[in-house]
């Protein structure tokens, strides 16, 4: 993944484990355009779509767990 944002949001993402090169799993998305539920390493996060829009994911073909 890549994070296309600078400043505080990048720091916050970083502190929650979202940094370039880490692998992310999208667990689910809330209804009606609600936030996404992600897993990075051993942490789980919820991110509003607006804030998630600067995260760029490259699909990996690892077998789903």
């Amino acid at each position: 993944m890549a994070v296309n944002v600078e400043g505080d949001l990048k720091k916050r993402f970083f502190a929650l484990g979202l940094k370039e090169g880490s692998s992310v799993r999208v667990l689910r998305r809330a209804k009606f355009g609600g936030p996404m539920h992600l897993r990075v390493g051993t942490s789980e996060l919820i991110v509003r779509l607006k804030d998630a829009s600067c995260i760029c994911l490259v699909p990996s073909f690892a077998s789903p767990v």
């Binding site: 505080d8 949001l9 916050r12 993402f13 539920h37 789980e44 996060l45 919820i46 991110v47 804030d51």
Partner: peptide
């Protein structure tokens, strides 16, 4: 604040 929350177990 960005809406990025931890989802604890």
């Amino acid at each position: 604040d960005a809406f990025v929350l931890e989802m604890p177990p």
